[in-house]
Amino acid sequence: MRIRHCGDAMLLVEFEAVIDPLINERVIALAARIRDRRARGIQDVVPGYCTLGVHFDPLHTDLSALERAIEHEARDLGAIEQLPDRAPIEIAVRYGGEWGPDLDAVAAKAGCSPAEVIARHSGRLYRVYMLGFVPGFAYMGRVDPAIVMARHRVPRERVPAGSVGIAGEQTGVYPIESPGGWQLIGRTTATMFDAERTPPNLVGPGDLVRFVAVTDGGA
């Protein structure tokens, strides 16, 4: 673990630079511990895949005390050697057709049928590594190697809210209509983000997600 200065108002705590559930679990645990200290000047504690951003007000923060606190809280993170059991959050998805305009192309590229892409995508549990891009957008992994797909070279200008996509080994749901380059294989009616809800995001860092294929009449 290493603490880096990003300008004068953010620290970045770096773990081993890999996308790994256990590393990510430690990042999330450290985030919770730092938040719980409620130290003066801390504005936001933001977990990434294998990094943790700590935003602070430089005029109201004892920076060396903050660095010591991070080191102290990180001391025994190595003791986290297993992922806790969490109940998966199910997200119902209509795959293909107008809901998933890229499903057939993904199947062609993978050399299988669209039904098999659906089975592979909905057939495993995904970990939410981090949120970003827009409010409530969760980066989840990893997808079945057979259906790993590169992003579109030219992103779509408008991806409808609820669209479920694949980018590389990641999968995710667009919470709001936005531009986007992910391969769209389905759509959900689940509300991924609602500022009036507590918490506003349907899924958070460390959560497990299962996509459930539905046919018309469902979701």
């Binding site: 953010m10 630079a17 294998c50």
Partner: peptide, 11 residues
Amino acid sequence: ELISEPVGMGA
């Protein structure tokens, strides 16, 4: 590219 990480204003 990096593995995506938190960023702040001014980066």
